[in-house]
Every structure is written in structure tokens, then in C-alpha cells.
Nucleic acid binder design. Structure first.
Length: 420
DNA sequence: TCTGGGGTCCTAGGGCGA
DNA sequence: TCTGTCGCCCTAGGACCC
């Protein structure tokens, strides 16, 4: 059996752990640059605040309903997430951390356990130990565990936040209850397609013909169908190195000058290459993209990307940035107002399996330099040592007007308790 | 005026060598 | 020598996830 543990309204819950006054109040978290709503408490959802809604469009709603607004604080959420995951790993040896707020558990050899009760225990221990409320869904496949989790989350009192699908009757009932858009793996496009042929819920999807599903939704759709029928197609995924490492950002203003974009691309490459070195890997493909603001229909639009091959697989910022700058030069066009850019490193291989080039070889000094830089930045605690290509006076700055303290990762932000 | 970021997987279609 | 077919590789684009 598989279990899916999902933290309820994770980012909002993290803020509440350290500010209990937020309990019962509407809370929203905004994306980078304070652009969109990316998380909401139940109270905020009840007000009709939509996921992904632009913040500037919600201002009136926020004001009138005294909504508590926060800029995203990923250092805090990441730390809280590892506390939850550490607690979960005490309940089974088989765990897959699926995202910052979700984990799949596998219960092999738990035949003598009452899994419903076990789920309730997991819920209690995690919530007590971390302050984060969770829901637990258990079923024979990962996709059904997702469904079970939705039921536990929807009916926390009736289910005690733990629901198990362990009979054919329960499976069919749960699928009939699940709207087609809520099935894991069926997004908005497929949902429209399915509704057009009269499929409204997961059960109706599960009895479609295999041929139709395969033809219209590829092998991925067919796998979902089998999973919903109770036949496991997906197992726990092993932790593996990332296949692509990206740093992409929207700018706080529009850029027209090549030099400005060049500085940003240089900084993005520095950050991506740092992530690459952290996972002990090399890359041999650098993709750069730039684009104008596609929301501004009144302005001329331009969007291009390019992939540049490095001479050899490397993790050196100097070599990767050389390629990124070549790419940028090729795709930059003057006369446009640029809103976003990014650098994505691809063709990633572990250090141990790096293929050497016949004619070019890495400069050994780069390796020593990168290592020294990473160590310096690590000891300082943030990226302070930079290359000349990056702006020292940080002309570019992310908008984060409502950032909460870093309660668990910065010593000056740790809560002080007064003892009488 | 202001609209996120970072990933994965799959398929179609073209180029190319056997 | 020419042509058709097959399979592999690569890229672009579409779908999805959180």
C-alpha cells in the first residue's frame, strides 16, 4: 500500500507556526516579486481568492477582508519541510519526498497494521512535533492515495485526517466523488477534452476504452487509468540528480540595454553553476532565453531561446558564462523592452562520468577557484563573493515588501521568550 | 503600473546513416 | 546508382506537477 502525506496549506501553515495570531484569519503568500498568489489559508480560499491570481487585482479584496499578506520566504518553508520529512521517515523506511509539502510512503510488510489508525498516528505526531497540520491518504496505488488524501483533507473531522481506500466498494465510491480535474496527472487541457465527451468524474474516466485513452492522452493517460483501477504503475522514485538546473526571473522593470541583460544572465549563470557544483555534476549545454512582457499586448513582442554547446562538460562558472554570453549576443535584438530572462543548464552528468573532449580540456585552475568561492560563500552564509560580470551594487532587486522574519534559519530572527 | 519559478515526461517530426 | 524503409538521435513544443 502507498501513503500520501500532504501538508495543509503549507506556506500559510508555516507562517502560522510562528505567528499564532494568524489562526482563523485569512492568510495569503505571494510569489517572487510579490506578483501572484501562490498559497492561501482556508479562510482566504473561502473569500474566493484564486490560486495564481495577480496580487494587484486582489488589493481591494485583501483590504476589505483584512487579509494577512506575506512575501514568500523559501528559507523558512524549506527548513519546516525538512522537519516534517524527518518525522515522516520514522514511520516507514520507504519514503519519497515528492515536493516541498508532500511525501509518498510505502507500507510493505505492514499487513498486520490497522493502516487507518496508523495514518491517524502519523497525523498526530507530525502536527504535534512541527506545528504543521497534515492529511494522510492510503491506497493500493499512488494515484488512488492522492484521491484518498483529498478525502481526508476535505473531511478532517469525519476521517480524523486519515483515509484508506482498501476495498473495491470504497474505490468506486471515491472515484465517483472525485471531479475529473482533481485527478493527479489530469490538468486543465485534458479535463476540457474529457468533459467534452461527457466524462465528469474519475470513475467515468476509469471505464473509458484503453484505445481512446492511449490515442488521446498518450501512455501517460493510460497509466493514470490503470492506477485508478487499482493496478500500480508507479513505484517510489529514487533520489536522482537533476536533469536540468534553471535560474529564471522576471525583472522589476523593463530592460532595453544589452549590458543590463548581460549582467542578469551572468548572475543567473553564477547561481545555476553553484547549484550544479552542489550536486557534484557537470553540464555541456547552456540554454539562454529572453522575452518581453507578454501581458502587454500593446507593445511589440519578442521571445527567443538558444542552446550553446560547451567545448567540454564543466561546472565552471567562467566557461558556462562564456557560452551563456555567446548565446545572449546571438538572440538579443535592440528596440524591445525585456521583462524576463533565464539560464538553464542541461546535458548534466555526474563528475565521475564526465566525458573528455579530444581537443579541449578544462582549465585546472577553474576547479580550484570555484571550490574556493563556494567555500567562502558557504562560510559567509550567502553569496557575497561574486564575479566581475555580476553587478556589485545590485541594480536589480526582487520586490519582497512583506517578508516575514527567518524564524528558524537566522539567529537574529529566532523568537525570544520572556521568562518571569 | 503591477501577472512566479523550477522541474519532469512524452510525442511529433526532421535529419541521417545503414 | 537510385530509392524506399527503418531506427536512432535531436529538438521543439505540449502536457503535467508543486
Amino acid at each position: 500500500m502507498f501513503g500520501l502525506v500532504d501538508c495543509n496549506n503549507f506556506y500559510a501553515s508555516c507562517q502560522r507556526v510562528f505567528e499564532p495570531r494568524l489562526k482563523g484569519k485569512p492568510v495569503v503568500i505571494l510569489s517572487n516579486n510579490d506578483g501572484c498568489v501562490i498559497a492561501r489559508s482556508n479562510e482566504a480560499k473561502a473569500l474566493g481568492i484564486k490560486m495564481g491570481a495577480p496580487a494587484f487585482e486582489c488589493e481591494k479584496l485583501f483590504r476589505e477582508n483584512h487579509v494577512h499578506i506575506y512575501s514568500s520566504n523559501f528559507a523558512l518553508y524549506g527548513d519546516m519541510s525538512s522537519r516534517v520529512m524527518n518525522t515522516l521517515s520514522t514511520f516507514t523506511p520507504s519514503i519519497e519526498i515528492y515536493s516541498i509539502d508532500e511525501a509518498f510512503l510505502k507500507f510493505d510488510g505492514f499487513d498486520s497494521y490497522d493502516l487507518k489508525k496508523y495514518g491517524e498516528k502519523i497525523q498526530k505526531v507530525v502536527t504535534k512535533g512541527t506545528g504543521i497540520p497534515i492529511s494522510v491518504g492510503i491506497a493500493p496505488t499512488k494515484t488512488l492515495a492522492k484521491v484518498a488524501n483529498k478525502i481526508a483533507k476535505k473531511y478532517p473531522i469525519k476521517t480524523r485526517s486519515s483515509y484508506v481506500i482498501d476495498t473495491e466498494q470504497k474505490r468506486i465510491k471515491a472515484l465517483k466523488w472525485t471531479e475529473i480535474d482533481d485527478v493527479w496527472g489530469i490538468g486543465s487541457r485534458y479535463a476540457i477534452k474529457l468533459r467534452n465527451i461527457g466524462v465528469q468524474n474519475a470513475y467515468q474516466f476509469s471505464i473509458l476504452s484503453n484505445d481512446w485513452v492511449k490515442k488521446e492522452m498518450s501512455i501517460v493517460g493510460l497509466r493514470i487509468k490503470y492506477e485508478l483501477m487499482g493496478n500500480p504503475m508507479l513505484d517510489l522514485e529514487k533520489i536522482q540528480h537533476k536533469k536540468a538546473i534553471a535560474t529564471t526571473r522576471s525583472f522589476e522593470r523593463l530592460y532595453t540595454q544589452y549590458e543590463d541583460l548581460s549582467e542578469r544572465v551572468s548572475a543567473f549563470t553564477a547561481y545555476s553553476s553553484e547549484k550544479l557544483r552542489k550536486q557534484n555534476s557537470h553540464s555541456n549545454l547552456v540554454m539562454v532565453f529572453i522575452r518581453t512582457n507578454y501581458f502587454r499586448k500593446d507593445q511589440p513582442q519578442y521571445s527567443r531561446s538558444i542552446v550553446i554547446k560547451t567545448d567540454y562538460a564543466t561546472s565552471s562558472y567562467i566557461e558556462l558564462n562564456r557560452c551563456a554570453q555567446i548565446g545572449l549576443k546571438k538572440i538579443y535584438k535592440s528596440g524591445y523592452q525585456y521583462k524576463k530572462a533565464g539560464v538553464i543548464l542541461m546535458g548534466i552528468s555526474p563528475d565521475s562520468a564526465t566525458q573528455l573532449s579530444l581537443f579541449e580540456s578544462p582549465n585546472p585552475k577553474h576547479r580550484i577557484l570555484m571550490h574556493a568561492m563556494d567555500q567562502l560563500n558557504q562560510s559567509i552564509g550567502s553569496t557575497k563573493v561574486m564575479f566581475a560580470g555580476q553587478s556589485l551594487d545590485r541594480k536589480w532587486k526582487m520586490k519582497q515588501e512583506r517578508l516575514s522574519p527567518y524564524f528558524t534559519t537566522k539567529i537574529k530572527d529566532v523568537i525570544k521568550i520572556k521568562l518571569n
